[in-house]
Design a protein around this nucleic acid. Structure first.
Lengths: 156, 156
DNA sequence: CCATATAGTCAATCAGGTTGTCTAACATGT
DNA sequence: ACATGTTAGACAACCTGATTGACTATATGG
């Protein structure tokens, strides 16, 4: 029993492992022509998706207000990752879509994540990594994105 | 090969697993008399430790400026988790120490994390959880705290 | 046709981070 | 002993990303 790890190690390691992956992703993305991309941009662009979305929808998905979602879109627009187009069926709506540059970032991210997973598979063995993924799936809810992580973690 | 999980699932699951633990910790802490405690408070108090620390030291440990560390201490002081005392050997320094209320939060957190780990051990089996911890240890650097997660993740 | 609901924007505010500057106190070398 | 350099903390100005509230324009449904 005394050989069990203390309970506080688990969350620390989970967070650290996440950071390792994300940091290495962005190191590589910077090398591949996306030096300005930040951790949460990938999440936001993933939420926008290939079909585009609106500020209100994005806010719901990210768990933030539509105004905050709008500001995030402003930033991504300024960086050239997304563009706003008007919905011809509802002129109130402005559909935010990924630009080719944004799509490029997403496809490169997917590729890099696959490479990083392969490195972990080399390190642990494919069977152990597979088990790790299966265990994490059992321990985490499905389908939930919860992209409000910055505010969630930081709010004092 | 095609049965391998896509690379992007791993970071998502790691972050989600972290959130599950932290959210359940704070649900329980709220029930046990610490409703105002936020995710990063625990990390900061852990960094302060039983012997206390100064704003400069805390800033170094957390990877933020001494001013930011000072503001964080202000917040924890306002909530009653820490108090500032002067160092008799160096009157420039103000040692920030945990109050009994702060110590209580830390000991309860440790206990709750142990309980959560036990629940995961029930879910997966102790051997699988042990393997998961061992694998995460292999994949993450040791000794590093890096508490700048909010800014790190959020900065657009 | 009017009442209500929704999309987006603007403005004010807040929290937490940054850098720069300043003062007080320690540490050191001549 | 003292002049110099370094360190701790506080204060101010500013930046970013979030919030709520108010407002306009456009749909939508009775």
């Amino acid at each position: 029993m005394s050989s069990d790890a203390p309970g506080f190690e688990l969350p620390l390691r989970l967070l650290l492992a996440f950071r390792v992956l994300i940091d290495e992703l962005h190191d590589e993305l910077a090398r591949q022509g996306h030096p300005d991309l930040r951790p949460m941009h990938g999440f936001v662009m993933q939420a926008i998706g290939p079909r585009g979305t609106t500020a209100v929808e994005l806010g719901r998905m990210l768990g933030v207000s539509k105004q905050a979602a709008g500001k995030t879109i402003d930033t991504l627009e300024r960086l050239g990752y997304v563009e706003r187009t008007t919905d011809s069926h509802d002129t109130r709506r402005k559909i935010t879509r990924l630009t080719p540059y944004g799509m490029d970032a997403l496809t490169r991210s997917a590729r890099i994540f696959d490479d990083l997973r392969a490195r972990w598979a080399d390190e642990l063995g494919e069977d152990r990594l597979h088990a790790l993924e299966a265990d994490l799936r059992r321990l985490t809810p499905d389908g939930l994105w919860r992209l409000d992580t910055p505010g969630w973690f930081g709010s004092l």
